[in-house]
Design a protein around this nucleic acid. Structure first.
Lengths: 221, 221
DNA sequence: CCGGCCAGTAACCAAACAGTTACTTGATGA
DNA sequence: TCATCAAGTAACTGTTTGGTTACTGGCCGG
């Protein structure tokens, strides 16, 4: 539009400090992309915005990840690895069955509350019917640990007579996850239509207690 | 790309039958937009796609609604009106308190199951922090009816000694909605990572029973 | 019976977008 | 000490996209 010379590129002398640190640049892109995808979804996220947020430019993003979809896939994988890794350090089997379940419920709720971007990414992925998650080879074995440990805790509770016999591990986890996910991810529409700020501390505390109460009430003998 | 003449527009004689039916065209756009927004979110939805799905063209869409955001707002409003209208016909106060709560839980679950596009729209709206919902004047008074009626049922249950005294109407509704919403809207990632098809009839039926069971268990005296 | 109005069409436009190209710079090891 | 190669930059490109313009044609009140 303004300049005519196409070949002779004039360059201003270095404005940004050169990083020359591949690990750092890659990590910065991934973190910036996490925020961008979480805030805008797959369709709304902008490659330029990710590059700018990461303090680099598009060329590097394509250099490290190939294309937009691959960046998204890496972001999604990292997010799942994050929660499942933290979960592993819980050792819900170390205490009584009731305490174990309560601990898992509390952990899940607090993790969701601390990482709303994870919930947002799940929302985006489900909007697209798990299109990228299904392609991921990395995430196939990640989740079995949770179910195995939960099954063990429930079985101990059944033998001790404190839990009902029909308690299904997956259903118990889905109950915990449902109550946390919906409250946080849908807080904006809910606060609007019911005229109550769900982010207020009192309401958050009440819901935390509610999740533990509901989860235990649903499996107690 | 092919034709050169800019001013002299040549027109093929009428290919599509002229509808000349404003009501129908408007409704067709709204229905097509509902599907497009539900499937792709705000950022992913395409105005051209909506027009094509509606069997019309962009000009009409802009004629009736102004711009993309207004179309989306109308879609969202229609969706909320849909569920709240159906809800009103329930009359959960007509039976015993326990039956009333069970009825509301069943209705909500089945409505969600039948209208996944509503859940998707909620997800999109929450991704954008209720940006459009908050602007809507039409949807302010729509939801109070639900809370009023639920409060009445819970109070009756408390007086009869079947419900606990601390049961909060909003929390009861959030419990019901959480369990339905999460299971359906996150079914794709959940089915993938846990290797169980959540759309299978047996699983759906089990979850329906589970929702009623959990809701009642959490408020029973 | 005709002039203006409104539903409808298709071609068009500028901006935004994902992805590419052509080039520069700094570190390293032979 | 200099050739090589990876890290980095900015300008460019073809396409898509939301939104507009210029036009057509059926219908209805005067």
């Amino acid at each position: 539009m303004d300049g005519g010379e196409k070949k002779t590129v004039k360059r201003r002398s270095q404005e940004r400090v050169l990083q020359r640190d591949p690990e750092r640049t890659r990590a910065a892109i991934l973190e910036a992309a996490t925020r961008e995808f979480a805030e805008n979804g797959m369709g709304g996220a902008r490659v330029d915005a990710i590059a700018e947020r990461a303090g680099t430019n598009k060329r590097m993003l394509y250099h490290y990840f190939g294309d937009k979809e691959q960046v998204y896939l890496h972001v999604l994988e990292e997010a799942y690895v994050g929660i499942r890794t933290a979960e592993r350090e819980l050792h819900i089997g170390d205490r009584s069955p009731e305490e174990g379940i309560a601990e898992l419920a509390l952990f899940t709720w607090r993790y969701f509350l601390k990482h709303p971007e994870f919930l947002s990414l799940l929302g985006t992925e489900n909007l697209h019917r798990a299109r990228w998650l299904r392609q991921s080879v990395r995430l196939k074995e990640l989740h079995s640990h949770l179910i195995v440990e939960l099954t063990e805790v429930l079985d101990r509770g059944k033998k001790a007579g404190v839990f009902i016999a029909v308690a299904d591990p997956l259903n118990v986890y889905l109950t915990i996850a449902s109550l946390g996910y919906f409250y946080i991810s849908n807080q904006y529409t809910l606060s609007t239509i019911f005229g109550r700020d769900l982010q207020e501390k009192d309401n958050l505390d009440a819901w935390e207690r509610h999740i533990v109460h509901v989860t235990l009430a649903s499996i107690k003998a």
